[in-house]
Computed example of a mutant assay.
Amino acid sequence: MNTHRTRPENQQDPIKLKNLVREAEERLLNMESSRELQPLIERLHQLQASIDHNYNLDSLLLFVNHELAEYVRLPIAVKERVVIDQSFATRDLIRAMHLSAAYYLLVLSKQQARLIEAFNNEVVQEFEGDFPIENTQFFVTNKEEISDPRRHTNMLAEFFNRIDKVVNKSIKDHPLPVLLCTEEEHYHLYKRVADKKELLLEPFLSGNRVEEPAHAIVAAAWPIMEAWKKAQILQRKQELQQAIGAQKVLTDVSEIYQAIKNGQVQSLFVEEGLIQPAVIEQEQVVFVSDQKLSQKEVIDDIYDELMEECMRFGGEVVLLPDGELSQFGGCAA
């Protein structure tokens, strides 16, 4: 369900959640006996009561089964719905993941280096211990060398190389893309001496910001990361177009279903808003109307099911804006 971040709008959220919980309860009781479902319904009500709506973001997802009862707040709008199925509907989690970015910011100057972990426009942590790294030895003091620009560059390259080794040690257990925040000449020099160039992003945040607070640096970096994420999605779309040209694309939902089960799908492309109830009959996907959602054998959303299975078999799910896959009915693999 969609929620609100601030008052007084968020005072509507508990009422909306109550109505959706009631809808879920009614659908459950239409499918099974109340005795079997009472523990599940009680877990749902307990989870509902535990939510403090003062901390809401843009949407709220509840996941409940006999072993688990959890909720997730997301910074994106969602289509409001109740899903009752054998597996959780994770489309919105995947979409939030596609639109979000976890990354490191290496804030660099010729005197100092700081390392910040960020998620979107929020600071996760600033590394301490090995950071900040101060340049206490890699600078020219010899009078004869002060006028030699190559000597200055070599000394700075050595300082950056030492920084790079500490960065790689610090992030080896949790590798993420690294966005450099530095002046342009330093960006190119650092990239030249870096051991793991594949982790360094092409864009960089320009300027000397080593004295700025972490939250200000991350706020300035987020538009760059947001554009980078969108470029990644565009690149995947171009890869799909190439596969279409090579006639290596499946578009029939039943064929996609079979290929996923056989572990033959590397990438599944689905439009963000595509939702379709279905049943599986003799290994074929058969679409049904929303009026049959209360029937036990009906899968609330076959595309959620395909995404879950694709990821379970090691494949990747790529969500595209609505209309991008209209020639294929909204789904391709």
Results as ranks from 00 to 15, higher is better:
L40T: 07
H66C: 03
I146M: 14
V83Y: 13
N30E: 14
R35A: 07
A113G: 04
E80Q: 14
K79E: 15
Q46G: 14
L57C: 02
I41Q: 08
N19I: 07
M31C: 09
L99G: 10
T90E: 13
L68S: 15
L61A: 11
D92L: 03
N121R: 05
I41A: 09
F127W: 08
F119L: 02
F138E: 13
H45Q: 14
A118G: 10
E36W: 03
A49N: 15
E42R: 08
F63A: 06
T136F: 06
E42Q: 12
E128T: 14
A96V: 01
S34D: 05
L74M: 09
S50D: 08
E25L: 01
F131S: 13
T90F: 05
S100I: 00
R91I: 06
K143H: 11
Y103M: 10
N135Y: 06
A24T: 01
E122K: 12
P149A: 07
E122V: 07
V78I: 13
R35V: 08
L106H: 09
N19G: 12
T90I: 14
V140L: 02
L47M: 04
F127C: 15
E32G: 02
E80D: 14
I76H: 00
L37W: 00
E117R: 10
K18V: 07
N56W: 00
I94N: 14
R22T: 04
A113R: 07
S33V: 05
S109E: 04
T141N: 15
I133M: 13
S59Y: 01
L93E: 12
S109N: 02
L105Y: 05
I84C: 09
A69R: 07
M97L: 13
A89L: 08
Q86Y: 14
V123P: 13
E36R: 10
D58V: 00
S87E: 14
V21C: 10
R43Y: 04
S109M: 06
S87P: 01
R95E: 13
S87C: 06
L28I: 15
M31A: 11
I94W: 06
L106T: 12
V83T: 15
A89G: 11
L60C: 04
R81M: 10
D92I: 03
G129M: 10
F139H: 03
R95F: 14
I76T: 07
D85H: 02
I76V: 08
L40Y: 01
F138N: 11
A69E: 13
D148G: 07
M31F: 01
P149Q: 11
Q125P: 06
E67W: 00
A102H: 15
V124F: 11
H98K: 05
F127Q: 09
Q86I: 08
D52V: 01
R91W: 02
D58E: 09
E126K: 06
P75S: 09
L106S: 07
L44S: 10
L62Y: 04
N30F: 03
A69L: 05
R73E: 07
V78T: 15
K79N: 15
L40S: 06
Q86P: 03
E23I: 05
D148A: 11
F127T: 11
Q46A: 12
I76L: 05
L44R: 04
D58A: 00
E67N: 13
N65I: 01
V78G: 11
D92C: 03
Q46H: 14
R91L: 04
R27I: 04
E126C: 08
F119D: 00
S50Y: 05
L93T: 00
L57D: 10
A113C: 12
V124M: 11
